[in-house]
Each structure stands twice: as structure tokens, then as C-alpha cells.
Design a protein around this nucleic acid. Sequence first.
RNA 1: UGCCCGAUGGUGUAAUGGUAGCACGAACGACUCUGACUCGUUCUGUCUAGGUUCGACUCCUAGUCGGGCAGCCA
Length: 599
Amino acid sequence: MSAEQNDPAAPAVPSDFIRDIVAQHVAERRYPQIVTRFPPEPNGYIHIGHAKAICIDFGIALENGGRCNLRFDDTNPVKEDVEYVESITADLQWLVAGWADQVLGFKPKGSSPVAQTVDGRPDFYCAPAAPGNVEIEPFFASDYFEQLHDFAVTLIKKGKAYVCDLSPEDTDLYRGAPDKPGKDSPWRNRTVEENLALFARMRAGEFPNGHCSLRARIDMAAPNVWLRDPLLYRIRHIAHHHVGARWCIYPLYDFAHCLSDYLEGVTHSFCTVEYIPHRPLYDWLLEQLDLPRPLPRQYEFSPLKIGYIIVSKRKLLQLVQQKAVSGWDDPRMPTISGLRRRGVPAASIRRFVIGTGVTRADAVTDIAVLEHVIREDLNTRALRRLGVLKPVKIVLTNLAEGEVIEVDATNHPQDEQRTTRKVALTREVYIETDDFSEVPPPKYFRLKPGGEVRLKYACIITCNEVVKDAAGTVVELRCTADLSTRSGGPNADQKVKGTIHWVSATHSIPAEVRIYDRLFRVADPDADGDFLKHLNPHSMEVVQARIEASLASATVEDRFQFERLGYFSLDPKDSAPGQLVFNRTISLKDNAAKAPGKA
RNA sequence: UGCCCGAUGGUGUAAUGGUAGCACGAACGACUCUGACUCGUUCUGUCUAGGUUCGACUCCUAGUCGGGCAGCCA
């Protein structure tokens, strides 16, 4: 439906087992509207793994005329920070822009769930912002703390929750093991009145951290350990980044998540397979509370795993803290902000993620698939330009000093209009060091002593002389240019084996170019539990390049292909007018890389 | 070892009781003023054993292998 209209690069609406379930719910009109949510914890930056969840959460909302709330799952103030809520919000908006922004749910700034009556029963609901609302913000689980607290009190009154004085260590002991049943807490049978009083004192701050907790009263012998009287609230004397110092008890994930979903009217709560054991608890909590609206349900899919890439916020944080990278947005990072800074289009990320499908099976996607969609997108969009990364000088001996020959260069080979720009050919030009070989291997198509090659868009040149320094390094090649072979000239069709890129020495500009390679040397850096030792020491190479003068006016939004090299864009942080810094988003595919001619 | 989830080419995914398909990848070839793009050809698969059925990737049973779960993290 509307997905394709807004995003020409988007594939057909995908089909998978989750969408089949939703389609059935729609067919039987189980819910008035399909509502999903994307629930990051603001304790790190979102990465390509989150992009999968985003494509599912937003995609399904979009395909069904629903809504997807951005909700921060901020129930643990010790790990969370506003820096992360801001970066996550910005990265998410960038990722869905032009695709699903119309279903992205925000709420009026400062709002919290309001009381309502449904079928004569009391209820609370946190509504999304209306189109007219100017001051809006994402949803926050922390805005539900009051209602969550009341739900906990209800549970206590029903005898479904109790205050437990076991220490954290003893709680562990009493829980038993997966193959051994747990033991009832000695505090499990306190009276409702006692529990109510104790819980009130917890809230009032009468107890230190860890002194006691609120627990669900389920079954300490359950085979599923998450049903062995899981903790609902813990004491944390610490201020919260979003709601301040109002609370010293904070709900845990299992308690907060299902109820937050309910308060927002979420119908389908998608998460990764690691939460499968939590689902009975998700359902149990919801079912204890006599909630009048249809209950949300949790559905699980397997997380995105990609070869050579690590997606674990904890480990990415380690890379940042150890300065293995320059920050969360280092272009080598698999974070959304890193990919963005590297020049990867949001549509490529979405296309990649959607292409990997949705199943519950453990799977590792080949990084070549990601690289393929990036190249595919960039190939259609990127303007062609000439740039030389590792220059070696050529003197065209038959051209006069100061002579400038303007040649036409096409901006895009597949472009219908065939627009062109002027590029200056002068006596001195630079070519890529790799494009000359003094002792060429077989099937080497490029320049060699006595050989000829075409300077793209210009003419064929012949190498007459190789000038070296004392160390034997080639410092200059002296060549002659056959101007009759100029594009458009009488011998323009003359065939040569190779065509190479080049820039004028006098009519080009300098630029720093950062060439990236994979961050890790091995496909599964975490296999032996020590991912840091597999860092690729050559994941970034910085070169001083010469690029054609027209690039002086490049903007951060522009995408370029430096011909024969790859796709490049300006570094949004470090580039400045007159001090250009380009990132190589990705190289061109190199089918000859394994041939003898290339190394 | 208790509970749960899963298994289709090298990789990811489709086929929902009726021709195992698509994409990536790889190989070869065509084209080429990008060794890119594009195009063509080729390559490799239903974990195992039983059962149900006219017919099984699909349903059943058992096994094998892989993954998840025992934070006052999410």
C-alpha cells in the first residue's frame, strides 16, 4: 500500500508468520486499530539490530493503518540518560523518514495516562498526540509510574503480590535452578494489610536499597523460572532522568512492559525470542487486573545477526569507552548514527532488514547482503565524480604548460538526460598509484611502461618514461596524450584495454578521505568471548586525496561515486568548507580483485 | 541435566498436503570510455529414522543438532 508510494526503493510489502497473525486479527476485527510500539531503553544508541524491530513495529502499523508509539522503557534510572533519549529519537526519526513517519506515535508533552470508563469499568489510557498538538514528546514508561504503582497495590489486595524481605542473594538461592524447583519465601504469606503497609513504606523511602522488594505471588515450583515469584519493584534511591526524584521504588521490566503496552492501547507487542520465557508472565500480570480493554499480546522473532558485526549495546559501549572507535557515531559502528554518518541511506538499512525476513530461527545474515543493497541504492543516486585517493603524477609532455583542455564528464551513466560537467585536462595530472604497474601481472588492463590507457572522458595516453627517486619509488610518469582520441574527437572510438580515473594537478582540490574496512577481522568476533582481540587494526585508513574542483561545493546530503573507487559523502561532523573530509561509504564491487591483475 | 524455541543450497528466505522458488554469493560468458552497472548461463538444499496419506518441506512420533531462559538489567 502506501509503503511503496513513499519509498520507491522499498520492496513489496513483506509476508511472514507475524504478519499472517496480524492479518487474521484484522480480518476478525479483534481490535479497533493495530497499535504497536518500539520500546528502547535509553542506555545506549540504537543500532542495525534495532532497525529490524523498527521495520517490524512500524511496518506492520503502516500496512494496517495503525500506529507505532516510540516508548522509552526507562524503568532503571541507574543505567539511563537523556543523552540517549535524544539520540534514539533523532536516529529513529531519520530511519523512518519518508516511509513511516505518519504512523510514528508521540504524545502531548508532559501527559500521562488519564482515567476513563470502559463498559462501566474504570480504566486508564495514555493517548497519542492529536495532529494539532505542537508540544509533543515520545512515550515514557516512567510517565506511568503512578498507575503502575496502583496496579501493584491492586495485585497486593488480591493476594497476588507480596513484600519480600529476602536479600538479593537469598532471593537467588530460593529461586532454585532450572532443573530444581524453588522454595517459598518466608515472607510469602504476609497478610494483605501487612503487604500494603510495607509497600507504602517502601515508596516512602523508609528502607535502603535492596532491603526488600515487591514480588508477584505465582509458583516457586514452576518449571519456567520467570514464574517463580518474579520481582515487580525494587528500591533504588536515585533520581530518574525523566521524572526526577519523585520515586525511590522502580518497577522491573516484566511488570512495567505489559502494563505500559496496555496503557497505550498497544495490541501487538513484538520482541525477540529471548523474551519467549517471559510471555506467560506478561499474560499473567495482565490477566490479574480486570482490565476492560482488549489485552495486548506478545509475539517473538529472532534477532538480526550479521557476520563481522557486533550488536550488543554493552559491547558497543565498551568500544566507545575504550576509544576503539571515536564514538557511538563512528562510521565503523553498526549504530544508526554511525551508518548515517558513513553515508548509508536510511532506505538501504530498511531494505536490507526487510530483505532478511522475519522468522524464529537462529540466523546469521551475510554482510554481503547489506553491502549489496547499499551499492544498489547508491548506484542509482550517486553523482559520478573523479577523485584520486593515492596520487602519482603524470606529465603529459605534449601539452603546453598552462594549457587547459575542458572535457565533458557525464554525471551519471544511466541518467536519461545525460547531463555533463566540465573537467580540466592539463599538462600535469594525477592518477591512482595502483593504476600503474612497472612489471604488470598478466591481464593487467591499466598503465605500464610503453603501454597506453584512456583517461576517462579525456583521451588515450602512452607512457614513455618512468621517473624514480633514489629509493626507486616512482615519482612521475612522462606520457604523451593523443588528443585525436578525445571524447567526441575523430579517433574517439579507438579501443584500449583500460580506462582510468584522474584529476588535473592544478585544477583539483585536496581532501581528506577516510577509507573504512570491517571493524572485526573475523565473522563471529564474540565466538570466544573476547571480541576486542579481533578488532581489525586497519579498519580506518586516512588518505590525502586530490579530487575534482566541482566537489568544493558538495553538501552533506550529496552522495558521490568517485569513479572506479566507490561511494563517498562528506563527513557531517569533521568536514568544513576548504577542509573537506569524505567518508567512503562502501567500495565498488571489484570482480577483478582476485584476478592476477589486482592485489 | 528442567522448561521453552528452532532446523529448506555456502548464507538469508519462500512454498501453509499437490512442479522446492527468490535473493545474496560463487563460476563462466556478453557488454563496457567505471575490471562498476546491466544482461546471459551454470552451481549447491528440505537434519535423521519411522508413521499418516494417492501424494509430506508441510501433519504425527522418536532421535540428532543448534539456540534461549536461573539480574533487585531490559
